[in-house]
Amino acid sequence: MILSNTQKSFAAKSNSYFILLIFLIIPLTTNYCQLTTDNNFFSPYNRLKFGNYLYKDKDYLRAAKEFKEYLKVYSNDTVQFKFSNSFFKIGRFTEAADNFKGLFFSSTLSEEARLMFFESNFFQNDFNKFRNLADQDVYLSLKYRKEIERLKFTTYFFDIATLPAENIILEPFPDSVQSQIAKFYIQKKIPLHKNPTTAAILSTLLPGAGKIYTGEVGDGITALVTTALSAYLAYTNFNAGHQFRGWLFAGMTAFFYGGNIYGSAASAQIYNARIRFDFDKEVKFYFEQRNYFLPQIDL
């Protein structure tokens, strides 16, 4: 087909206009839209991107702020979970628990949120409240029922609540650790405490004996020798006619003797506190090393 010059010119003009139109539309659809999304660093999309970066960088407090701003505009379960988890990671467990609660219903992360809700409550160290929560079915997770139950029984090792029967506590724990948990149970149930009154009576009868009873053998022998020596010095000084020195050493003897009785009772209390402290430390270390038998959940 042969085109006339007018037609050729028209076709060329049409092509040119078309290309021009494309150049005009492209910026409108990319550049200007990006101005409101990509180039605006504070758009919800960019806040989410930046929040995710901060979250990966473990800068959780800043990440939480970015997620919060995003969630003001859009609803997103994953972001809500990360937002709650940011509080969990920085030890703000109350806020973490409150925010995990928001994912309990009609969410794909409902089960994980429930577990994290219980974890957040566990680390608040109000174990009585934790046990009450664990007994309420409305909060329980079907998928993580066993984990939550384990946490519930773990709480008994950390406070002064009356221990349930041994078999009940042991049941949710794996077979491989049951002997260790049973050992903790016995230690918690029958702690090897020393009686302060017994220690005081022993030291009244024989200076230092109370200390030896509480395991302070060196202190006990020193107390016995010091008291005996000062008593002997008081005796010899009185005999030699040195009244002042005699009374001085007699006073010292009374001070050592009385001090040792008091010290033995205190030593028994310190011994008991040490037993409790060592037990708490050992239990905490044991469970921490095993992440409280909980799965690692992070998105």
């Binding site: 040119s16 021009l20 150049f23």
Partner: peptide, 24 residues
Amino acid sequence: MKTRLTAIFFCFLLFNIVNGQENL
């Protein structure tokens, strides 16, 4: 015409770059 189109194209490209710089 080609020259004009090229000029328009580079103008928009420049606008994009300058705009991004301004935001930063």
